[in-house]
Amino acid sequence: MTAIPVTGAAASRGFLRRFASQEALLALAVIGLAVAVGFVNPRFLAYRNLADILLGNAYIAIAAIGMSMVIISGNIDISVGALIGVLATVSGSLAVAGAPTAVAWLVPLALGILVMAAQGAVVAYLRIPAIVVTLGMLSILKGGLISVTGGKWITDLPQGFHLADLDVLGVPMPVVIMVAATALAAIWMRDTASGRAIYATGGNAEAARLCGVNPQRTVVMVFALHGLFAGLATLVYATQLRVIQSTTPSGLELTIITASVVGGVSILGGAGTVVGSTLAAILIAEITSALVFVNVSPYWTDALRGGLILATVIADIIRRRRRAARGWRT
C-alpha cells in the first residue's frame, strides 16, 4: 500500500475521543454483567470460568477483527463462517497427512488471504456488491467442502498440531493471539495512513479518491487482511478440540457480524474500532455463559440473548445520536 497521510493530528485526537467511550462502555458492560451474575452465582467469577469463556470464543473475536475492517470499508462478508470451516479442514488434513506442523498452520493463513483477496478484487474492480459475491462464495465453499470431504471427521490429529493448547508465559495461546491481533490491528488502523484509508474508503470513497487514497486497492487489502484474520481464527478454532468436523459451522458468519456491529462498527461504513468488536465478542460469549449460570430456562436463553444484544445496540445508537446532538462528529 502506498502510505498517504489522510488526516491531521487534530482530527486524530477527535477520533480517539470519539471512540474511546464506546469501548469503555462495552468494557463496563462486560464487567457489570460479570458482577451482576456473580451475585446470583459466585462460581461465575472463578478464574477458570472467566478464562474458559475467553478461550472458547477467542476465534470469534479474532474473526470479528477482519469483519470489522470489511464493514468499516463499506462492505460485508457472509462467507467467513464457511471459509473457516474449509480452512480448518485443510489444516487438519495436512496435519494428518504428515505435513510439518508449520505447513499445517501457515497454509490456512495463506489460503484465507488468497480466497478473501480474490473476493475483494471482484468487489473492488468488477464492482459487484460484496453481499452478492460473498453470498455466492458461501454456497460454493459450503457445497464444495462436503463434495470433497463427504463430511468425514478428521481424527488422530498429531500432538504438536494443537496450537491452542500452547501458552506464552502462562497465558493461553488463543488469548495471546486475540489480544495481540486486536492491539496490532487497532494501532495500525488508528496510526497509519494505510489503516486510516479504510475509514476514508468506507466513509466516502469519492472523497477518499480525491485525497489520494486508492479505494479499490484499499478494499482488496481489507479483504486480504480479513482472510488473514479468518486464517488466525481457524488456527484457534481447529486446534482447540481433538476432532475437526469438516463441515461449515452453521451460522458462524452471523455471530461474527453481530460481534462487529455490537462493537460499534457502523454498518454504513467509515466508523468503528476493532477493540470494540473484540469486547463485543467477549460480551456476547459472556451473556451465553451467564444465562446458564443464573438458571434461565434453556427455552428462553436465545430470546434473552437476542434481547440483550438488541438493548446494547440501541443504547449505542442513542448514545451516538446524543453526542451528535451535542455537536460531536459521529
Partner: peptide, 18 residues
Amino acid sequence: RYLLTTAAAACALTAFAT
C-alpha cells in the same frame, strides 16, 4: 445510563431464572 441498562438486564435475568 449504561449501568442502568446492565442493572435492568440483571433484573431480567433474575426474573427469568427458574
